[in-house]
Design a protein around this nucleic acid. Sequence first.
DNA 1: AAGAACACCAACCGCAAGGGG
DNA 2: GCCCCTTGCGGTTGGTGTTCT
Length: 253
Amino acid sequence: MGRAPCCDKANVKRGPWSPEEDATLKNYVQNHGTGGNWIALPLKAGLKRCGKSCRLRWLNYLRPDIKHGGFTEEEDNIIFTLYSQMGSRWSVIASQLPGRTDNDVKNYWNTKLKKKILAGKLSSFSSNNNGGLINAVQKPEAAAVSLPYYSTPLPIPPDVGYGFSVSSTPLPILSPSCPNLDNNIVVVSSQQGSAVSDSAGNGYVEDTGGILVDDHHQQQQFSFEFPYEFINGGIGGPSLVDFSHADIERGIV
DNA sequence: AAGAACACCAACCGCAAGGGG
DNA sequence: GCCCCTTGCGGTTGGTGTTCT
């Protein structure tokens, strides 16, 4: 037996909300609150709507503190930074932006901001204070072995689908030729990779041979890959030249 | 001018988590 | 501990407006 539907779909209205419905819902919530039960609310308020629909309409549109209108550059940067760190945790990201909803942020990211970043038009991505690099933070679930959570400057925005893997066999200790070896996490070296493609025909540039060193001088080999057209500058991203050994070394923390 | 393609965003869907009985 | 109900979340869809050809 499957899950019981949250409401009787045959007897509820769907689709866009009318101004009358908005007014009814707004008046009811402002006068009576939600009563802690959205499922029962539409019946009490006299709305032929699903409780979930009412909740969504209130949270995303009717709440008095909702901010409508375009996102500012500062908001762009906050979204980008938080997305870099935690991925698509829209509710968490939205909680850092007063008046914005998770749906707003999600839509904005998917329709505009992602393109803006890929075009290199976001200040935190294109500025020179980090050598043109941004902090791409490894997603925890991507780690194949237990390593400290770390950030590594890479010339990519976090949404371009880079993969990340760590070899299971620790490498021999590298000679400490790198002046930053004593820092917590170091990307010691990297090299330009070769173009590869997956079974669906999507092109990637695969970079291999990077070394991570943690604060116990334990080393792990890693590899990562980026969509080929992005690395190749085809959609406004950096050219392959930007993705060099030197650039990554410059970003060592 | 008209149809096609694209962009935007509100709304829906299904799943997981949380809480109460 | 289990079950059921509700809420919250993130992914996806579909309608509408705009731009392009």
